[in-house]
């Protein structure tokens, strides 16, 4: 199957097991949302997909080939764009440098400079607020600005799968709105495949085609968002 397939993945930190056999599919062109209360292992799952954590068993594959033994940076080059939870920027680099360092990475030098400028312009069109902050160290950006930069950073590499970890966490409503529009636009206009982790249920259900709910390291519920009953999530998400 093309897209991302997570099959029966078990992950532990030392002796503490966190994921007890999680399976998940994100087919090409879909927008899948993973929900679950704090500490159930959502970020752990995404870090495993990104290649920062090694599963004890189970597999992750992307476009039909297994990612076992493929390092995090190689996964990024295969088209996996990851926007981690929180302030995921290089704090001492300026906004411009945050984007530059990712675009000019090794192996991409062959690409024409003009093409890159075009990539950059396209991405900045999505986040006009960033254009006035290009020379500011990213560590000084507000939470909302840093989040936009982090998404832009993932997008300038032209990913085929975009993975977002709680993009609305701690962000003011107007920027949440912008981020929602951006995600919807990416999905609808260019058919980008997206895996979204979110605790803001209404936001997630508005955007996603499919959902999966994680609890205590297992997937406890999956389905189409069009058939989902929002009130049913209240119990699954309650702390």
């Amino acid at each position: 199957m093309s897209g991302l397939v997570v099959d029966d993945v078990r992950v532990a930190y030392g002796r503490t097991e966190v994921l007890f056999g999680v399976s998940l599919e994100v087919p090409d062109g879909s927008l899948v949302c993973v929900m679950g209360r704090n500490g159930v292992g959502k970020t752990t799952l995404l870090n495993t997909i990104a290649g920062l954590l090694k599963p004890q068993s189970g597999s992750v594959s992307f476009d039909g080939s297994s990612l076992a033994g493929v390092g995090a940076h190689q996964r990024a080059r295969l088209g996996l764009g990851y926007v981690p939870q929180g302030h995921a920027v290089f704090p001492q680099l300026t906004t411009r440098e945050n984007l530059q360092v990712v675009m000019e990475r090794q192996g991409r030098r062959a690409r024409a400079a003009s093409l890159r400028q075009q990539d950059l312009d396209e991405v900045l069109d999505l986040f006009p607020a960033l254009t006035t902050l290009m020379n500011r160290p990213a560590g000084l950006l507000s939470g909302g600005q840093a989040k936009q930069l982090a998404i832009a950073r993932a997008l300038v590499t032209g990913p085929r799968l975009l993975v977002l970890d709680e993009p609305t966490e701690g962000i003011q409503p107007s920027i949440i709105h912008e981020i929602e529009d951006t995600i919807a636009k990416l999905h609808a206009a260019i058919g980008m495949t997206i895996l979204l982790v979110e605790q803001y249920v209404e936001f997630a259900l508005r955007l996603a085609d499919r959902y999966a709910v994680l609890d205590a390291g297992r997937v406890v519920s999956t389905g189409l968002t069009s058939e989902a009953d929002p009130s049913a999530f209240a119990e699954l998400m309650a702390v």
Partner: peptide, 11 residues
Amino acid sequence: QNRDLAAISGL
């Protein structure tokens, strides 16, 4: 500044 972030950005 951030090793993991650099890795997942393709560096």
